[in-house]
Lab assay of single mutants.
Amino acid sequence: TYTYKLTDEEASRRAEDEWRNRGYDVRVRNNNGTWEVEVR
């Protein structure tokens, strides 16, 4: 499981799409203004 911490929502969406396209399960959540993109 990888977790990315990003401050930019758009960057988190791009990361989400990119990993999803590669067949990974992705979750995005906002934690106090930081976007966490979790990849498994």
Rank of each mutant, 00 (worst) to 15 (best):
residue 1 T to M: 10
residue 28 V to W: 02
residue 36 E to H: 06
residue 7 T to K: 13
residue 11 A to G: 06
residue 40 R to E: 06
residue 18 E to V: 10
residue 39 V to S: 00
residue 37 V to T: 02
residue 10 E to D: 11
residue 15 A to T: 11
residue 2 Y to D: 10
residue 23 G to A: 00
residue 4 Y to R: 00
residue 30 N to K: 10
residue 9 E to I: 07
residue 40 R to N: 07
residue 36 E to V: 11
residue 37 V to Y: 01
residue 28 V to R: 10
residue 24 Y to N: 02
residue 2 Y to T: 14
residue 8 D to F: 04
residue 29 R to K: 10
residue 33 G to M: 03
residue 30 N to G: 06
residue 5 K to I: 15
residue 40 R to T: 12
residue 30 N to T: 07
residue 39 V to Q: 00
residue 20 R to A: 05
residue 12 S to R: 04
residue 19 W to T: 02
residue 29 R to V: 12
residue 18 E to Q: 10
residue 2 Y to I: 15
residue 13 R to M: 08
residue 22 R to F: 05
residue 36 E to T: 08
residue 22 R to V: 03
residue 38 E to Y: 06
residue 28 V to M: 04
residue 36 E to M: 08
residue 2 Y to E: 11
residue 27 R to T: 15
residue 17 D to E: 14
residue 4 Y to G: 05
residue 15 A to F: 14
residue 1 T to H: 13
residue 7 T to G: 13
residue 14 R to D: 06
residue 31 N to V: 14
residue 18 E to Y: 15
residue 35 W to S: 01
residue 35 W to T: 02
residue 25 D to Y: 06
residue 21 N to E: 12
residue 32 N to D: 09
residue 16 E to Q: 10
residue 36 E to F: 13
residue 5 K to T: 15
residue 16 E to P: 02
residue 14 R to S: 08
residue 23 G to T: 00
residue 13 R to I: 08
residue 17 D to Y: 12
residue 3 T to H: 09
residue 21 N to M: 11
residue 14 R to G: 05
residue 19 W to P: 00
residue 3 T to Q: 06
residue 25 D to I: 12
residue 33 G to N: 05
residue 22 R to W: 06
residue 27 R to W: 07
residue 4 Y to Q: 08
residue 25 D to V: 10
residue 38 E to S: 09
residue 18 E to N: 06
residue 21 N to V: 07
residue 33 G to H: 03
residue 16 E to Y: 12
residue 4 Y to I: 14
residue 32 N to A: 08
residue 20 R to Q: 05
residue 18 E to T: 09
residue 29 R to M: 08
residue 23 G to Q: 01
residue 20 R to F: 04
residue 12 S to N: 02
residue 40 R to W: 13
residue 11 A to E: 13
residue 32 N to Q: 07
residue 26 V to S: 01
residue 12 S to H: 03
residue 12 S to K: 05
residue 12 S to P: 01
residue 12 S to Q: 03
residue 2 Y to R: 14
residue 33 G to I: 01
residue 32 N to Y: 04
residue 9 E to K: 06
residue 4 Y to A: 04
residue 10 E to T: 09
residue 15 A to N: 03
residue 28 V to G: 01
residue 36 E to G: 00
residue 2 Y to V: 15
residue 10 E to V: 09
residue 30 N to A: 08
residue 39 V to F: 03
residue 3 T to E: 07
residue 34 T to N: 07
residue 36 E to P: 00
residue 2 Y to K: 14
residue 39 V to K: 00
residue 26 V to E: 01
residue 37 V to M: 05
residue 22 R to Y: 05
residue 25 D to M: 09
residue 32 N to R: 05
residue 26 V to N: 00
residue 30 N to Q: 12
residue 14 R to Y: 07
residue 27 R to Q: 13
residue 33 G to C: 07
residue 32 N to W: 03
residue 6 L to Y: 15
residue 15 A to Q: 06
residue 9 E to A: 08
residue 1 T to N: 12
residue 24 Y to M: 04
residue 27 R to P: 02
residue 29 R to P: 01
residue 22 R to K: 12
residue 28 V to L: 05
residue 9 E to F: 09
residue 9 E to N: 03
residue 29 R to E: 05
residue 19 W to E: 03
residue 6 L to M: 15
residue 4 Y to V: 09
residue 36 E to Q: 05
residue 31 N to F: 10
residue 11 A to Q: 09
residue 25 D to H: 11
residue 27 R to H: 12
residue 32 N to H: 07
residue 33 G to K: 02
residue 17 D to K: 14
residue 34 T to F: 13
residue 35 W to F: 07
residue 5 K to Q: 15
residue 24 Y to C: 07
residue 34 T to L: 12
residue 19 W to D: 02
residue 17 D to W: 12
residue 36 E to L: 11
residue 29 R to N: 08
residue 1 T to Y: 15
residue 38 E to A: 05
residue 19 W to H: 03
residue 11 A to M: 09
residue 4 Y to D: 12
residue 26 V to T: 05
residue 15 A to W: 10
residue 3 T to C: 15
residue 14 R to F: 09
residue 7 T to Q: 14
residue 28 V to E: 01
residue 22 R to S: 05
residue 9 E to D: 04
residue 23 G to I: 01
residue 36 E to I: 13
residue 13 R to P: 02
residue 22 R to H: 07
residue 9 E to W: 09
residue 6 L to I: 08
residue 28 V to T: 05
residue 26 V to Q: 01
residue 33 G to Q: 03
residue 40 R to L: 11
residue 6 L to V: 15
residue 13 R to Y: 06
residue 35 W to L: 03
residue 7 T to I: 12
residue 26 V to R: 00
residue 7 T to H: 13
residue 17 D to V: 14
residue 37 V to A: 02
residue 35 W to G: 01
residue 13 R to K: 11
residue 22 R to T: 03
residue 29 R to G: 04
residue 29 R to L: 10
residue 39 V to M: 02
residue 35 W to K: 01
residue 21 N to S: 13
residue 9 E to Q: 07
residue 40 R to M: 10
residue 12 S to C: 15
residue 27 R to C: 13
residue 15 A to G: 02
residue 24 Y to D: 02
residue 12 S to I: 07
residue 10 E to H: 07
residue 38 E to Q: 09
residue 12 S to D: 02
residue 24 Y to S: 02
residue 24 Y to I: 04
residue 16 E to W: 08
residue 9 E to M: 06
residue 4 Y to P: 11
residue 23 G to S: 01
residue 2 Y to F: 14
residue 39 V to T: 01
residue 10 E to Q: 11
residue 33 G to W: 01
residue 19 W to S: 02
residue 10 E to G: 08
residue 12 S to Y: 07
residue 17 D to S: 13
residue 13 R to A: 07
residue 8 D to Y: 04
residue 7 T to F: 14
residue 23 G to R: 00
residue 38 E to I: 13
residue 11 A to S: 12
residue 32 N to C: 15
residue 2 Y to Q: 12
residue 33 G to Y: 02
residue 29 R to Q: 09
residue 23 G to K: 01
residue 34 T to M: 12
residue 38 E to N: 05
residue 26 V to K: 00
residue 39 V to C: 14
residue 17 D to Q: 14
residue 3 T to W: 10
residue 21 N to D: 10
residue 5 K to F: 15
residue 2 Y to L: 14
residue 1 T to R: 11
residue 21 N to T: 10
residue 27 R to N: 11
residue 14 R to P: 02
residue 39 V to D: 00
residue 22 R to G: 05
residue 16 E to N: 04
residue 21 N to I: 08
residue 29 R to W: 09
residue 25 D to F: 07
residue 11 A to I: 04
residue 39 V to Y: 02
residue 33 G to E: 04
residue 8 D to K: 01
residue 4 Y to N: 04
residue 16 E to F: 13
residue 15 A to D: 06
residue 3 T to D: 09
residue 5 K to V: 15
residue 10 E to L: 09
residue 26 V to H: 01
residue 32 N to M: 08
residue 1 T to G: 13
residue 1 T to F: 14
residue 38 E to P: 00
residue 8 D to S: 14
residue 3 T to P: 06
residue 23 G to N: 02
residue 34 T to P: 01
residue 19 W to Q: 01
residue 15 A to I: 15
residue 24 Y to E: 02
residue 20 R to I: 07
residue 30 N to L: 12
residue 21 N to P: 00
residue 17 D to P: 00
residue 4 Y to C: 12
residue 13 R to H: 08
residue 21 N to F: 06
residue 4 Y to L: 10
residue 22 R to E: 05
residue 16 E to D: 03
residue 11 A to T: 10
residue 34 T to K: 07
residue 29 R to S: 12
residue 33 G to D: 05
residue 36 E to N: 03
residue 34 T to G: 06
residue 24 Y to V: 04
residue 27 R to Y: 10
residue 10 E to F: 07
residue 27 R to G: 04
residue 13 R to S: 05
residue 30 N to I: 11
residue 1 T to A: 11
residue 5 K to W: 14
residue 6 L to A: 12
residue 37 V to L: 10
residue 20 R to Y: 04
residue 4 Y to E: 14
residue 24 Y to A: 04
residue 31 N to E: 08
residue 12 S to G: 09
residue 16 E to T: 10
residue 24 Y to Q: 03
residue 13 R to Q: 08
residue 38 E to W: 04
residue 23 G to D: 02
residue 32 N to T: 03
residue 3 T to Y: 12
residue 8 D to E: 06
residue 28 V to Y: 03
residue 39 V to P: 00
residue 5 K to A: 12
residue 31 N to H: 10
residue 21 N to H: 09
residue 13 R to E: 04
residue 21 N to G: 10
residue 40 R to A: 09
residue 37 V to N: 00
residue 27 R to S: 13
residue 18 E to F: 15
residue 3 T to K: 09
residue 4 Y to S: 04
residue 37 V to F: 03
residue 32 N to F: 06
residue 32 N to P: 00
residue 1 T to V: 13
residue 10 E to I: 09
residue 30 N to V: 12
residue 11 A to F: 05
residue 34 T to C: 07
residue 39 V to L: 05
residue 34 T to R: 06
residue 30 N to F: 15
residue 24 Y to F: 12
residue 40 R to S: 13
residue 22 R to L: 12
residue 39 V to N: 00
residue 36 E to A: 03
residue 23 G to L: 00
residue 23 G to E: 02
residue 19 W to V: 01
residue 31 N to T: 10
residue 20 R to S: 06
residue 5 K to L: 15
residue 7 T to W: 13
residue 38 E to D: 06
residue 34 T to A: 09
residue 34 T to D: 07
residue 40 R to V: 10
residue 40 R to K: 10
residue 17 D to L: 14
residue 6 L to F: 15
residue 31 N to Q: 08
residue 26 V to M: 00
residue 17 D to F: 13
residue 14 R to Q: 11
residue 35 W to D: 01
residue 30 N to P: 06
residue 25 D to G: 04
residue 20 R to K: 11
residue 16 E to L: 11
residue 40 R to P: 04
residue 8 D to H: 03
residue 7 T to C: 15
residue 35 W to V: 02
